[in-house]
Design a binder for these strands. Structure first.
Lengths: 184, 184
DNA sequence: GGTTGACATGTCACTCCTTACATGTCACCT
DNA sequence: AGGTGACATGTAAGGAGTGACATGTCAACC
């Protein structure tokens, strides 16, 4: 089993917090939460749930209306999740189109580079607004004292900091490009 | 052509800066530079170079010793790279194991969560040291006034900021977990 | 009764990426 | 002459991920 695991883990975590759920519900919740850190569509989720069931990490309860299958986490599944969190040092393999653009941007003329950097800043700004709205909604509704009250909260905080970092970086890089082209 | 493109673009950029190079040389340079933002092994690079040649983005010069093929960027290749940088808004699809761990960490007991967060901080620290050494080496050697002097420099700066951000986040999150478990 | 649209689950084809395997060249050492 | 090891280029098998397609249920509305 040298596979990536991450989708499995994400689903185990989500199912732990949600309690027994159907694939459809999981896919919807996934989209609104875990997808910020690990993307997957229903066409990947349904087969993975089936495989996880076959591997004993999940159990299928009664099938509800419209053929809904209700999954829940087995003890093996809990153990798998715990083990991954405690023992697995995450692989650092990056693959970010934004970072690639930032890498290559010096290949452009200064004014073009500034345009690209400004676009990056704008989209970071939009992303930041989205994340801060999410946090505001959390603070208004969620019960942070509950058993899983902080589920996703640290990741949200991290995302906000990283996005702010991108904005600051873009500002400084724009200034740097302009300084260099001014004195050239 | 709804493909990802990113590997193509990375190779075009690297080849633009390196000047005509063999696949082997590109793979080595790739590993030391672009791989920080987009990973790929030689088994992916060789076929991609062949495809890019077939698509007219690259041209093969004389074959050197030991069957070396010397690739160079064609005008079509330059245009492709420019177009991607100027017109392509990078997809925001995240997929980070670190972020996934940060997402799920509240599922653990407080002391376990602290352990995981400390590990994340340590590895961020190591990564930061690596990046700062890279920057020091750049500053000692590189000629930032040269045509491509800043190639990769903005990405390196971004990486350093992001990694510092992770460390700060880890510190604050550890403090938060400890505060919550103390008052619970 | 029929249409619409949200609910619900899946498959298929294709691209992307990783690991391991396979092949052959050339310089240098003994 | 033979061995070693860096150089150099590839292929193959399989897992991961994407987008489009396919199928069927059920409630509500007209």
């Amino acid at each position: 089993m040298l596979q990536c695991m991450s989708l499995r883990i994400a689903l185990l975590g989500l199912l732990t917090v949600s309690g027994p759920s159907s694939g459809y519900d999981l896919a919807k919740k996934f989209e609104k939460s875990v997808a910020h850190v690990w993307q997957a569509g229903h066409s990947q989720i349904y087969p993975e749930l089936a495989k996880m069931t076959a591997d004993g990490l999940l159990a299928v309860g009664a099938e509800g209306a419209r053929g809904r299958k209700i999954y829940s986490v087995t003890p093996d599944g809990q153990a798998e999740l715990r083990r991954w969190l405690l023992d697995h040092s995450p692989s650092t393999t990056t693959r970010s189109e934004t970072a690639l653009q930032s890498f290559l941007v010096p290949l452009l003329e200064p004014d073009e580079a500034v345009t690209v950097l400004r676009r990056m800043k704008t989209s970071a700004q939009a992303h930041l607004a989205e994340l801060e709205e999410l946090r505001a909604a959390r603070n208004a509704i969620a019960d942070p004292a509950g058993r899983w009250g902080m589920f996703g909260a640290y990741a949200l905080d991290l995302g906000i900091r990283q996005t702010r970092g991108v904005m600051e970086w873009a500002d400084d890089s724009i200034a740097d490009v302009e300084r260099r082209s001014g004195t050239a």
